[in-house]
Simulated scan of single mutants.
Amino acid sequence: MRQAIHHLHVHARSRGLVDFTAQVREFVRETGIGTGLLTLFCRHTSASLLIQENADPSVRRDLERYFDAIAPEDPQRYEHDTEGPDDMPAHLRTALTQTQLSIPVEFGGPVLGTWQGIYLFEHRRHASTRDVVLHLIGE
């Protein structure tokens, strides 16, 4: 049994979904581990991780509009505003999604469906570089 760990820096220009599937595939390939379990962990409380459709960009736009509706920016709505009016909605969006994913690895690559991609979901308006830890265990 072998293990590999890597910190991947994912840059988001603004709020929305950033596809980083290619970087994940590259990490898995470079480890030489053929079969195992890949864990991805986002080390932030205002960004999250999703496995989502990667073929039709309207899916991502619809997701972003949905989260704007259920966790809107509204200074009258929230007590917490330490880092600005988009801070508390970002925390709510993260609470409704996830900061960790587990993906099986087979034949030296992550086992994803035909139309699945791995995304960082940035919930803040400003550009940010997020740290995602990749941990692969297997053989």
Rank of each mutant, 00 (worst) to 15 (best):
F27A: 10
V105L: 07
V18Y: 07
H80P: 02
R25Q: 15
I137N: 04
A127P: 12
H7F: 10
A95L: 15
H7V: 15
D19K: 03
R130P: 00
G117L: 10
V18H: 01
D87M: 09
I70W: 13
P104Q: 02
R65F: 08
R15Y: 04
G109A: 15
M88N: 00
S128H: 14
P85N: 03
Q116G: 10
S128K: 10
Y66D: 03
L120K: 01
H126D: 08
D81T: 14
V105G: 04
A55K: 12
V132K: 00
T114L: 13
H126Y: 08
A4N: 10
T21M: 12
M1W: 11
D86A: 01
D68N: 07
T97P: 08
M88T: 11
D86I: 04
L92A: 07
R93V: 14
F67N: 07
P104V: 01
F41R: 01
H123R: 02
L96E: 04
Q23K: 14
A12L: 03
L37D: 08
P110F: 05
R93K: 15
H135T: 12
R25K: 14
I33C: 00
L112G: 02
L38R: 00
R124N: 03
H80G: 01
D81S: 07
R13G: 15
Q98Y: 03
I5H: 14
G109Y: 14
R60W: 13
R124D: 05
L8A: 13
P75W: 00
L101E: 07
H11P: 15
L63W: 06
D131G: 04
L112Q: 05
R29L: 11
P110C: 06
D131L: 02
D56E: 09
Q116T: 13
L96P: 03
Q116F: 12
A47C: 10
A71R: 06
R61G: 11
H126R: 13
T39M: 10
T45N: 02
A90T: 02
V105E: 07
G36D: 00
E30N: 09
A95S: 15
N54T: 14
V133S: 01
C42L: 08
G117N: 10
N54L: 10
V111W: 10
A127I: 12
Q52M: 09
H44S: 04
Y66S: 06
Q98D: 05
T35G: 08
I118E: 09
S128R: 12
Q52N: 15
Q100V: 08
L8Y: 06
P57Y: 03
V132L: 02
Q3H: 08
M1N: 05
S128L: 14
R43E: 11
R65G: 04
T31M: 02
H126V: 13
Q3E: 13
D74S: 02
Q116D: 06
D81F: 14
T35Q: 13
A22F: 06
D56A: 06
G36F: 00
R130G: 01
F27T: 05
H91Q: 07
A22E: 12
A90N: 00
D19S: 03
V133H: 03
V18L: 07
L38S: 09
H135C: 11
V133C: 04
L38F: 01
E79T: 11
